[in-house]
Design a protein around this nucleic acid. Structure first.
Length: 580
RNA sequence: GCCCAUGUAGCUCAGUCGGCAGAGCACAUCCUUGGUAAGGAUGAGGUCACCGGUUCGAUUCCGGUCAUGGGCUCCA
């Protein structure tokens, strides 16, 4: 099975790579002055980087596509030619293709391969399709700037993105997927459902949670705190600023300064807006002597942190400058690491599943080149992480050398309903901060020992998690999270009293209820509620009033009932409590 | 931060080749009391992102700034 998938993936890559060459050919025909950089296949398609004084206009894409179709129609063969590297440098040098020359100079082999098709030659390892006519379905998608080799010190090139598939149907399916992604965009839904906003007057990357978003956040926070208390975490609250000195001691001022805001001076002392919660939790730990009997000690906080992010990377709720981490720091002894990781994994999966995320990509990152702590500790901690993952039977990938300098980590990416991955949860072992802050506990031997610290965030940041939730549910939140759970709609004005009676009964039972007695037709009120994705609509007309019953319309259009108010309340309370 | 694009009413968007700005939805008032996705009428609402320049005159042209979007790089 996996063989088949890999074979398909390889074929698709070849197809896309060849399409990328055809695009380069078309660009060469239409814009002879361009120089060529690189044009690989990527996950969802391909791109090619060109050096050209002016950017490509969106209209240019149509022209390039047209030319590409002509090239495809000619059905020229892709011809592989092997020549010596020196010869290739000569050829591309003469053409002024300095990017190709630079690439060539870094190829260790003595011979290199060229591919030619219809007179257009490009340096390429291959493989390629036999003939251009085998490209059946492609589309150019967007233009963008991209640095040569991704380095901002280098020249900005003009990139064109496109995609290609084996069949027209697959291409259409992919284009539909892109449409669906657009429809679910949390920035669009956030506006439509009045969940949150950003404001020019407040500042970029700073989120305003509107009532509808705020009630969802409160629901998430209540759930989170209750579950943490049950799981033997201690809930903390800590300030948003602290003396610069604290950040110097923690090492953040040295290693993390580029993400921190400038200090502010208060009574001649420098203070910093916090980018992390850890030093505060350590301070609380150190406020009294700790015994090995106190460990593991778990401190948790929904801590709001501020980090400088370059203006170009900000993105809705997913990349912001101020955010709230669902943070926790666990102080434990070395031989407790594995059990703690097991606990955290269980807890994480429980929380994520509650929000409807059932599949994950898990990564274990190991020791990087620059690190602190002893090799022995690194090995023990990395093994503990591995054992925990193995014991839970969780599939994971090892990212060698991708750990943070202070310890190994596990990252969990959740997959949403469109099968897209989002980095949220992270579990990191830390050998550094306990050392820097001289954190200790008294062991059974009466001596001082150094605890290990584990940082972990399950949702990561509430802002990002909320953004992912919006897209995952396409704005149609499950009942327990819905800002308005029930809307009571009257057919005519004379039904107002009974609607008020029913609505009030729901409200005092802690069901978020709205009573809509507006002077509008029922069809209009239902449309209005449907647009807002309200899960349950209670319809009140003459029949309901005279029978002392209610009729209910679900979000999917299905009608249920008639119920008594009590029957209906039982049904939805069950659904709310079950977080279904 | 860099490249490109965009910024007009609360929202979605027209428009002015330089001469006091327009639609739909939403909002307000009135008519209508209507049974499952938009009933009708009237009205109010804009320093055309901001600052500067050119011009008799700038929302429109030019320059700058800010913000947003697509990327590059980085991350929760």
């Amino acid at each position: 099975m996996s063989d088949i998938v890999e074979k398909d993936t390889a074929e698709l890559e070849i197809l896309r790579h060849s399409t990328s060459h055809i695009m380069a050919h078309a660009v060469k025909d239409l814009f002879p002055e361009v120089k060529f950089a690189i044009g690989p296949a990527i996950e969802d398609g391909f791109y090619y980087d060109f050096d050209r004084p002016a950017a490509f206009a969106p209209e240019d894409l149509a022209k390039i596509e047209k030319r590409m179709k002509e090239i495809i129609k000619k059905n020229n063969p892709f011809v592989r030619k092997e020549i010596s590297k020196a010869e290739a440098i000569e050829i591309f040098g003469q053409k002024g293709e300095n990017y190709k020359v630079e690439l060539l100079q870094e190829i260790p082999d003595d011979t290199v391969s060229l591919y030619e098709e219809g007179g257009f030659v490009d340096l390429c390892r291959g493989p390629h399709l036999p003939k251009t006519g085998m490209v059946k379905a492609f589309k150019l998608l967007s233009v963008a700037g991209a640095y040569w080799r991704g380095d901002e010190k280098n020249k900005m090139l003009r990139r064109i993105y496109g995609t290609a598939f084996e069949t027209k149907e697959e291409l259409d399916a992919y284009l539909n997927f892109l449409e669906e992604v657009k429809k679910r965009d949390h920035r669009k839904l956030g506006k439509e459902l009045d969940l949150f906003s950003l404001s020019e007057d407040i500042g970029p990357g700073l989120i305003l949670w509107h009532p509808n978003g705020a009630i969802i956040r409160k629901t998430i926070e209540d759930f989170w705190r209750n579950e943490h208390i049950k799981a033997d975490y201690k809930i903390l609250f800590t300030p948003h600023i602290a003396k610069l000195h604290l950040w110097q001691q923690s090492g953040h001022w040295d290693f993390y300064r580029e993400n921190m805001y400038s200090p502010m001076e208060i009574e001649e002392v420098a203070y910093e807006l916090k980018p992390m919660n850890c030093p505060f939790h350590i301070d609380i730990y150190k406020s009294s002597l700790k015994s090995y009997r106190d460990l593991p000690l778990r401190y948790a906080e929904l801590g709001t942190v501020y980090r400088y992010e370059r203006s170009g990377v900000l993105h809705g709720l997913l990349r912001v400058r101020g955010f709230t981490q669902d943070d926790a720091h666990i102080f434990c002894m070395e031989d407790q690491i594995e059990d703690e990781i097991l606990n955290i994994l269980d807890f994480t999966l429980f929380i994520l599943r509650t929000f409807g995320f059932e599949s994950y990509d898990i990564y274990l990152s190991t020791r990087p080149e620059k690190y602190v702590g002893s090799l022995d500790n690194w090995e023990k901690a990395t093994d503990a992480l591995k054992h925990a993952l193995d014991k839970k039977g969780l599939a994971y990938r090892v990212d060698p050398g991708e750990g943070v300098f202070y310890g190994p980590k596990i990252d969990i990416k959740i997959k949403d309903s469109l099968n897209r991955s989002w980095q949220c949860s992270t579990i990191q072992v830390d050998f550094n901060l306990p050392e820097r802050f001289d954190v200790t506990y008294r062991g059974s031997d009466g001596k001082e020992h150094r605890p290990i610290m584990i940082h972990r965030a399950l949702m990561g940041s509430l802002e990002r998690f909320f953004g992912v939730l919006i897209e995952h549910y396409a704005g149609a939140f499950p009942l327990w999270l819905s800002p308005v759970q029930v809307s009571v709609l009257t057919i005519a004005e004379r039904h107002g009293d009974y609607a008020l009676e029913i609505g009030t009964a729901l409200k005092i039972s802690d069901i978020r209820t709205e009573i809509n007695t507006d002077n509008e037709k029922i069809g209009y009120k239902i449309r209005e509620a449907a647009v807002r994705k309200i899960p349950y609509l209670v319809i009140i007309g003459d029949k309901e009033v005279s029978e002392k019953m209610i009729t209910v319309r679900k979000r999917n259009g299905e009608n249920i009932g008639p119920f008594t108010a009590e029957q209906f309340m039982d049904i939805i309370k069950d659904e709310i409590n079950g977080k279904k």
